[in-house]
Nucleic acid binder design. Structure first.
Lengths: 107, 107
DNA sequence: TCCATATTTCGATAACCGTGGAAATGATGA
DNA sequence: TCATCATTTCCACGGTTATCGAAATATGGA
């Protein structure tokens, strides 16, 4: 993962409404959530929510799929894991160190 | 870790200069680095670097210690790990999932 | 005490970001 | 085709952020 993508992802998450949206999608897992459901849960007006979802999608942290007249948003676990890995890479000059924020999420 | 702290940490990292500073400190490990060394490595003017270091310190991502006429900045691994854990908590509705960004860094 | 070096604070500027109402777009079923 | 519901785009406002030169503040050594 490149620095630019990392910064975009971090910036996307560094905002209360977006972090909540993303967390809700992370918890939701495979089935994902529609903007309507997210809006109800989090109490965000449609325009605001749409703005933030686009921001998250741009950052690669969520994906969307149309299903009838609904959209389904899902967390992109691989991208999130790339982000975590970037932050911990080459930690501590090779000293023994348990971070190496693991792996991938096969949800 | 609370949402507010998480957002502060993410915002602190969502900026190229700061991310580079933090990464340099993560790699440096226990010995840490002085602002002078960071400035040389990253080519940042003193005022800019100082601004960013304060930002990182405020976010809890780095700590500093005075040593003679030098300051030593270090990455706060525990805080970083708290951040990673927050992002992956309760992932995927309890489906089996390898994320759970591990543990702590005993560097 | 005084100097040289390390680092921070001040201040000004330009650019970016979050918010949400109102209007537009897109999709479906009748 | 039309009515309806879901979602996005447009727009304007106020607030926050990054940058860095110049000046101020440590600190230790001579």
């Amino acid at each position: 993962m490149e620095e630019k993508a990392v910064i975009k992802a971090l910036a996307a998450l560094a905002q209360a409404s977006r972090l909540r949206v993303f967390r809700a999608l992370v918890v939701a897992g495979r089935p994902g959530l529609t903007p309507g459901a997210l809006g109800n849960t989090l109490g965000l007006p449609p325009a605001t929510l749409s703005f933030h979802l686009k921001e998250l999608a741009h950052a690669g942290l969520v994906s969307l799929e149309r299903s009838g007249r609904h959209l389904i948003y899902r967390a992109e676990y691989a991208h999130m894991n790339g982000l975590l890995a970037y932050l911990t890479a080459n930690c501590c000059e090779g000293e023994p160190c348990a971070v190496v924020a693991s792996t991938s999420c096969p949800c």
